[in-house]
Structures are given as structure tokens and as C-alpha cells.
Simulated scan of single mutants.
Amino acid sequence: MSTEPEAPAPTPADGPSSGPTRRTFIATTSAVGGVVIAGGAIGGGFLASDEADAAPAAPASRVSLTVNGTRHTVTVDNRTSLLDLLREHLDLTGAKKGCDAGACGACTVLVDGHRQNACLTLAVRLEGAKVTTIEGLADGERLHPLQQAFIDEDAFQCGYCTPGQIVSGVGCIKEGHTHSPEEIREWMSGNICRCGCYVKIVRAVEQAAGRK
């Protein structure tokens, strides 16, 4: 049997030859990773800013149209809807932005006498058109007959859909679709009233059409 003494196990105090501990390894890698992430975020910020500066301007066009009897000539982004032109450029806020998808009728206006959803209509396609909004129905202080009928029949509650309902009703009367309550409901079905005033709306259209 050998009696040679065993060599002592190395300890952290043995000098610089000892390897890194698990704790120092994790701390070091975490610090390096943080620097890389921060550098990427900073670099990405500069890149996004450069791309934004380099983005081409959206194409715009000049369009002239008559709104409620007044001629307007404006330059707008080609993507601008008639609804946004009315509300944001001409300060005519009667037509409401409800669904902005042509499903509720709150933005209904008359274009050359025909009912149209302003949110689905590109303004640049209306060169020379005549547009009538809820603001253009009254004759001075005298209300349009359908506006008066809505008051007489109490055909609204919150009122948000009312401008579109009235303009659509005017179109419905001009189109001759008022021979019965059922016909009125059918041809006014594109205008939604979330308060549920449909019965009174039909009565108002009947009154304005001379059926009452």
C-alpha cells in the first residue's frame, strides 16, 4: 500500500488559474446581453426614423364640387373620403362617422340627388358633383318638411343617426318609395337606429311624403 500523501484540492484562493464561477458567468452574460439589446433598440430607432423621413408623400389631387349650394375647391389626399372632406375640411359635421364601413347609414348624403354613404365615397371622384348634407336641407330658418316631421313624430332619441335618417328619407321620398310603411322600411333599411325608433321614423317619412 502506498503511503504518498494526497494533493490538496484547489480553492478559489489558489490564484488566477481558477475558472469563473457560475454566478460570475451569469452576471457577465446578462450584462453583455443588455448592451446588445439596448444597441439594437437604439439602432432600430434611428432606422425607423430614417425610413419615415424617406417615405414618399401620399398623392393628392385638386377637386371642385358644390356642397349645399356653395362651390368648394380643395386639395386632398387621394384616399380621403367624402365624409372626411365634409367633416375635416369643410367643417360640416352633420354627417356622422358611425361604422366607417357603409353599414349604418349615419353618414348618408345626397350626391347629385341620390343617396350615398359618404364614408365609402372617395372625394376625388366627385369633380363637379353637387352634394347635399343635413345642413343644406333647411331653407333659412324654415325646416325641411321631413325635419319638421321628425320633430312632430318624436322620431329620434339619442339623435346620432338622425341626420343620416333624414337625408336618406328625403332621398326615399324623391325616389317614390313611400307607397306603404313596408316599402318605406325596405328602402330605409340601410339606416340603422340603435335606439329602435323605426316605427316613428316611418311615420315621419309618411308625413313628409303627404301620406298622413
Rank of each mutant, 00 (worst) to 15 (best):
V35T: 10
P56H: 03
G33F: 15
R62T: 14
S64Q: 08
G39N: 09
A55C: 10
V32F: 01
E51Q: 09
A41P: 10
D50P: 06
I42T: 07
V32I: 07
A60G: 02
T29I: 11
A48L: 12
S64D: 00
G40Y: 08
V32L: 11
A57D: 12
G43R: 05
R62N: 11
V32G: 00
V63A: 00
G40T: 11
E51W: 08
G34M: 09
G45R: 03
A60I: 07
G45I: 04
I26K: 13
T24Y: 03
A48R: 09
R62A: 13
A58I: 13
A31R: 08
V67S: 00
A31P: 03
V36F: 05
N68K: 11
V32D: 00
V63W: 01
V63M: 01
I37T: 12
A31F: 06
T28C: 03
A54Q: 13
L47C: 04
A27E: 11
P59I: 06
V32Y: 01
T29R: 09
S49H: 14
G33W: 14
R62Q: 15
A60K: 11
D53L: 15
R62G: 13
S61W: 04
S64E: 12
F25N: 04
L47W: 12
E51Y: 13
T28V: 11
V35G: 02
V63T: 02
N68R: 08
A41M: 15
A41S: 07
A31W: 06
V36A: 03
I26Y: 07
A54C: 13
A38W: 04
G43Q: 05
A58V: 15
V63P: 02
D53S: 14
G43N: 02
T29A: 05
F46H: 10
A52G: 03
P56R: 03
L47M: 11
T66F: 07
S61K: 12
T24L: 09
V63H: 00
F46A: 10
A52I: 14
D50A: 14
A38N: 04
G43A: 08
I42W: 02
S61D: 07
V36Q: 00
I37N: 05
S64C: 05
T28K: 10
D53R: 15
P56V: 12
L47E: 09
P56T: 07
I26A: 09
V32C: 00
G43V: 08
S49T: 15
A55G: 11
F46V: 15
A52N: 12
G39H: 10
I42Y: 04
A31M: 11
G45P: 03
A31L: 10
